[in-house]
């Protein structure tokens, strides 16, 4: 009875947020699932097509030259997304090492922290346009530096199928390495009990041993959190940078799943198909997160 009265009293306070969640989040999610079962071009009423969108996205058929996906662009977008996610481990490692460095008692440590954090608070489009010029094949800063310092003719970065993805990953590394991941690691490092380090010092452990046997295990929960969030973000990312810097090209080599969804929804007005792709993306993220969770739970214990 008391619980009910508490709930009744809490309800008016919760209602605005709850209403917003039901209408703008849960409602949109449910509607998007329904739309994924339809063919809808915005202008005419949706037509129910069952699982046809999913079949087209995920289906394969036998062609003269062998088995081929029904929609090769979707699979290419999946490949591009996974490829770009290869940037997650180096970024995490970079953030961890940077946090270790900034955790030392240095003169001006606050300034260093600010400087490394700056890229993640600068407006994204501004950063992307800056990098776009830096990547310019003929006049960009990077190729000029490669030529002047090493005598190497740099690649055509953003207009090369082979280099466009690494270029975006490089920019992503620069933006993310000193960002929130570094701050999380920094917070985690400051929570590692000093006694452990003192004990290690008495035992004669070297720096590498301390790092590997004390620091790294003690920040595992943070690593797990960052990894989970990075994987979720990685699957959903890639749109803004590709939109501004490459338009998803060259030859769709930077079209990620989120860009694919955007193209179908707003360029081709293929809403049902875009919704189906979004649900496939959700399923993939869900499975990965679940696996990651199970794997990490054991390790953390």
């Amino acid at each position: 009875m008391k619980k009910w009265s508490q709930l009744l009293r809490a309800l008016p306070f919760l209602a605005p947020n709850l209403a917003g969640f039901l209408v703008f989040t849960l409602g949109a999610v449910v509607v998007s699932f329904y739309l994924s079962l339809t063919e809808w071009d915005l202008l005419t009423p949706p037509r129910f097509v069952g699982l046809a969108n999913y079949a087209s996205l995920l289906g394969w058929h036998r062609a003269e030259t062998g088995w081929e996906p029904l929609d090769p662009e979707f699979w290419q977008a999946c490949y591009n997304t996974l490829f770009m996610m290869l940037g997650i481990p180096p970024t995490m490692l970079g953030s961890f090492l940077l946090a270790c460095a900034l955790n030392q008692k240095l003169a001006g440590e606050r300034i260093f922290r600010l400087v490394f954090f700056l890229p993640s608070i600068v407006a994204g489009v501004a950063v992307m346009l800056l990098w776009k010029w830096m990547f310019n094949a003929d006049y960009g800063l990077i190729n000029r530096a490669l030529w002047t310092i090493f005598g190497v003719q740099g690649p055509t970065w953003l207009t090369s199928v082979a280099w466009a993805k690494p270029a975006l990953m490089l920019m992503g590394f620069w933006t993310a390495v000193g960002g929130f991941n570094m701050m999380l690691y920094l917070a985690a490092l400051q929570n590692v009990p000093k006694e452990l380090y003192e004990a290690a010092e008495i035992d004669g452990a070297g720096r590498w041993s301390v790092l590997w046997h004390i620091t790294w295990p003690m920040v595992t929960p943070t690593t797990f959190f960052i990894l989970t969030m990075s994987i979720i973000g990685g699957f959903q990312s890639g749109f803004d940078a590709a939109y501004v810097m490459t338009g998803g090209g060259p030859a769709r080599s930077t079209t990620t799943i989120s860009y694919f969804i955007y193209n179908h929804a707003y360029e081709l007005l293929n809403m049902g198909y875009a919704a189906a792709a979004a649900w496939v993306l959700f399923a993939v993220v869900f499975v990965f997160t679940l696996l990651n969770w199970r794997n990490a739970r054991g390790r953390m214990q």
Binding site: E39, A52, H264, Y273
Partner: peptide, 11 residues
């Protein structure tokens, strides 16, 4: 082949 078997229902 692709013009005659486009991927999505709307296509």
């Amino acid at each position: 082949r692709r013009l005659n078997t486009p991927a999505s229902p709307i296509q």
